[in-house]
Amino acid sequence: MADGIAFAVFSALVWGGYLFALKRYFSAYPPSVVVVTANTAAVLWYLPVVLFAPAEGPPVETVNLSVLALTAFVLLASAVAYVALLRAISVGDVSYVAPLGKLVPAFTLPLEVLLVGENLTIPQITGVGFATLAVYLANYEGTELLAPIRRAATYRPAQLALGSAALYGGVDVGTRVLLQGAGFRPDIWVLVYTGGVAAALVPRAIRKWPADFAGELPKFVVVGGFVAVGTHTMSQAFAVLPASVVSPILNTQAIVAVVLGGVLLGEDRFALRLVAGAVAIVGISLIALG
């Protein structure tokens, strides 16, 4: 349990820095191109780990039609969620988008209750309420009380971020089932996940590929290292803990992105968004500890 939580916390720090890097250095590129290039680099970074220091056990314990279908869903949903989040970051402030895009536990928890049979506690229900309040605060601009709700429903970055969070909720539950139920070896899952998401987006990326891209490859190689490390630690956590515990911890990456975006990029309404991020963390903590 402690090791799983440690992996989840470290992964949150890595992914928080990754979100900031996407806004700071990659927002000019089409999201599909970013995902394909960064994930391909991540596979190349991680392949020596699998070849020369593999984990114990078979690559996967159970392979049947249900496992294949769930794997396909996780990869495709991740690809769509990834692109939606990158698009939200490119057109909106990272300190605004991150608290919304990382409200994944608000979706993971009810899905795990319905599909996997987890029990919903009072603190966890309260945590979902705090997560919802964070959405409201992130959209508040000092106007009438219902304006933030309308903004979250109609403002494009909010729509993309919340849609991404909903998809990632399903992805987290599916990942937990594949690692714990189907018995995917975590190191193999890193390759399947990063490579599969990249493959799903190749047709879209080819149509949007920039003409003068070769000179930009070094920074994609660097960010691919972040993807490899973050996916490895995330998989280690999902292999031993319920998704309703891993997801809240993992998505505290929002607060890292909010702080970096406000301090280093000077984004507007930083104080309110920092409060929104803190409220989201409270909700996430209640969900995890409940």
Rank of each mutant, 00 (worst) to 15 (best):
A2Q: 13
G4Y: 11
A6W: 10
A8E: 05
S11L: 06
G17E: 10
L19P: 00
L19R: 01
A21E: 02
L22S: 12
Y25A: 14
Y25C: 06
P30R: 06
V33M: 09
V34D: 00
T37W: 01
A42V: 03
V43I: 13
V50P: 07
A55C: 00
E56T: 02
P59I: 06
V63L: 15
N64I: 03
S66M: 08
S66T: 12
A84Q: 12
A88P: 05
G92L: 12
Y96C: 01
V97Q: 04
L100F: 08
K102Q: 14
K102I: 00
P105D: 09
F107S: 00
E112L: 11
V113W: 09
L114H: 03
L115F: 15
E118D: 12
T121Q: 10
Q124S: 15
G127V: 15
G127K: 13
F130V: 12
L133P: 10
L133N: 02
L137K: 04
E141G: 00
L146H: 07
R151Y: 03
T154R: 13
Y155S: 13
P157I: 04
Q159P: 00
Y168V: 03
G170L: 07
D172Q: 02
D172T: 03
V177D: 04
G181W: 10
P186F: 03
T194I: 06
G196D: 08
V197M: 12
V197E: 06
A198D: 05
A199C: 05
P203K: 11
P203G: 02
A205H: 06
R207K: 14
G224F: 12
V227G: 04
A228C: 09
P242V: 08
P248Q: 09
A254C: 03
I255D: 05
I255N: 06
V263M: 04
G266I: 04
G266Y: 10
D268M: 01
A271V: 14
L272P: 00
R273V: 07
R273A: 02
L274C: 02
G277M: 08
G277Y: 07
V279H: 03
A280K: 02
V282D: 04
S285N: 04
I287W: 01
